[in-house]
Amino acid sequence: MITGKTKTLAILADPVTHVRTPQALNQRFAEAGIDAVLVPLEVPAKALQATVNGLKACRNFAGFVVTVPHKTTVPAFCDVLSARAAAAMSVNVIRRGADGLLYGDLLDGEGFARGLERAGIEVAGKRVFLAGAGGAASAIAFALAARGIAALSIANRSTAKAEALIARLAAQYPALECHAQADPSDHDIAINGTSLGLNADDPLPFDPAALSKGTLVAEVIMQPEVTALLTAAEARGLRIHTGKYMLEEQLNEMLSFLTRDMGEVL
């Protein structure tokens, strides 16, 4: 039951109808006996700063989960960023501390990498193709680089954005072979790190027919669970990895991060 003592949180997205985090995180709150609720807010880009600033002023507001298309915009509205969020220039979770400040972190990459590990997929020494250079893709790139992948190819509609991500990776992982490339062939793992696949009429982020035999095809899209990309990959006999792994591995981290100061928020 929601009362005047309930801590409130929000997930910021546009659109918001596809999100699954509220259902999953609210279930975790209930199971842990935490008096908190996470609600979905559909916030257009032009209203993002006003929304964040307004909720920051609410003393019983505990934090945000942030998703498409706001992950690379909200870092500017945070008071403190974690090292990985600052390096990737992206945030997907924000805690309002007991001091009233907003603390931003990036859990996408860790969630994705841990999801691969839980599925028994070793990434060290692998050649990885990554579609996208936005918030989720940047987080994944840094998490995989930290786990010792051999090479990373990044494909993005904006080559400049891909090259900017490569420059940030090079500053932290100078030994990593990393370049902008649209061809997904000759890779061990091919990842969709874009929002393509949320809608039924979206184009594929890359062509599964171009993938080499034995390539693992992985998704960040959580709904639908099996996207058109994964369906096409399965039709070619390729192994697939759905976005649910990433979500499940993020939930514990999100729960810990968002509730750290919850007893003192009021």
Results as ranks from 00 to 15, higher is better:
1 M>K: 14
11 I>R: 03
11 I>K: 00
13 A>N: 09
15 P>V: 00
20 R>I: 12
22 P>D: 04
24 A>E: 13
33 G>N: 09
35 D>E: 15
36 A>F: 11
43 V>M: 07
43 V>C: 05
48 L>E: 08
53 N>R: 14
56 K>W: 01
56 K>Q: 13
58 C>G: 11
59 R>N: 15
72 T>R: 13
76 A>S: 13
77 F>E: 10
78 C>M: 06
79 D>K: 05
79 D>N: 08
88 A>T: 09
90 S>P: 05
92 N>D: 09
92 N>G: 08
93 V>G: 07
94 I>T: 09
95 R>G: 10
97 G>S: 12
101 L>D: 05
105 D>C: 05
108 D>R: 08
109 G>S: 10
109 G>P: 06
111 G>D: 00
120 G>S: 03
123 V>Y: 04
123 V>N: 00
125 G>M: 00
127 R>M: 03
127 R>G: 02
138 S>V: 07
145 A>C: 11
146 A>K: 09
152 L>V: 04
157 R>S: 01
162 A>P: 00
163 E>D: 15
164 A>G: 10
174 P>K: 09
177 E>T: 14
178 C>P: 00
178 C>H: 01
183 D>V: 07
185 S>A: 15
187 H>V: 10
198 L>I: 15
200 A>H: 12
201 D>I: 03
202 D>F: 05
206 F>Y: 04
213 K>G: 12
215 T>I: 12
216 L>A: 04
218 A>F: 08
220 V>C: 10
220 V>F: 04
224 P>E: 10
231 T>G: 13
240 I>A: 04
242 T>H: 14
242 T>Y: 10
243 G>A: 05
244 K>A: 15
244 K>V: 15
247 L>P: 01
249 E>F: 00
